[in-house]
Simulated assay, not measured.
Amino acid sequence: MQITTDKRPSAVRHGAAGIAFAAVLAAATVTATGVAGAAGAAGPAPSYDFGDCPALPAGVDAARWKCEVLTATGSLTLGSRTLPELAPMTITHAEGPLPDGAAGQVWGALRGGPTDVPGGILGVPAGHPNPRLGRLSLQPEYGGRSDFYSVGDDMGLFTLRFRAIGPALPDGCVIGAGETPIEIRLKRTGKSQWVSKNPPVIKFDARDDTFTAPAATGCGPLGRLLNDRLGLPSATGNSIALSAHYTFKTYDQLPPRA
């Protein structure tokens, strides 16, 4: 269980404590009279699974803790390669007040499938008779640190690593391994929209084009080729743009844990 405590000044901490980051943005940008119109414009909401909700810290009030589930699609530019359609990602975490009144968070899970890199590790052009030759895909994984309390349009941070997957690559081939994960600091773009009030579902867009991307490591003899192909390491030009749906339940609404 990863438990973090918000260390910001009390005026900020207590203003955000127990309030999900997307809900903060929605409350600031969607008025009560505009909910119906915004919901119609936002389109249908995805279904949600609360199975990754983490166990709560000892001594907290379950009714004041929320399990938050975010599903997102989007695009990624990493080094010199752009993946225009990322496989969907789901991020689950919990937040609420700790027994001492500080704002606490517990990480749940990140789930996301692999996304093929156009051209693969060899740069095979479109229309090649063997399009799977040198196939390469990137799969996101949690990097070990997160802070989802938001301030204004700044939506906190979470860290990612990307596992490089291909027939000729070992299992340990990773971009952002160990102590050098990729730090994503999303900033909301545009207005949040209520898709549904019951259950609460909010749609928003966010991006980050300020992060650095380290070289892949643990890739065996093809490591240099892989990094050259992806243009890694890369200090600038990296970006991630997400279109996300977000929902939550308080822990007293969730089934008892076994």
Rank of each mutant, 00 (worst) to 15 (best):
R111C: 06
R111L: 10
G112I: 05
P114T: 12
T115G: 12
P118K: 07
P118S: 13
G119M: 09
L122V: 10
G123N: 08
H128L: 04
R132N: 15
G134N: 09
S137V: 06
S137G: 08
L138E: 10
Q139F: 03
P140D: 04
E141Q: 15
Y142G: 08
G143W: 04
S146F: 13
D147R: 14
D147Y: 11
Y149D: 11
D153V: 05
G156H: 02
L157H: 13
F158R: 07
T159Y: 03
L160M: 11
L160I: 05
F162M: 04
R163S: 05
R163Q: 13
I165Q: 08
P167E: 04
P167N: 06
A168E: 10
A168G: 01
L169I: 03
I175Y: 01
I175T: 01
I175S: 01
G176Y: 00
A177H: 01
T180S: 14
P181S: 03
P181I: 01
E183P: 00
R188N: 07
R188Q: 14
Q193M: 12
W194F: 10
W194D: 03
V195H: 00
K197V: 13
N198Y: 01
P200H: 03
V201K: 00
V201T: 05
I202F: 02
F204Y: 15
D205R: 13
R207N: 13
D208C: 06
F211W: 12
A216I: 05
C219H: 06
G220E: 11
G220M: 09
P221R: 07
P221Y: 04
P221E: 04
L222M: 13
L222N: 08
G223P: 08
L225K: 13
L225N: 04
L225F: 05
L226M: 06
N227I: 07
N227H: 09
N227Q: 09
D228V: 03
D228Q: 14
L230R: 08
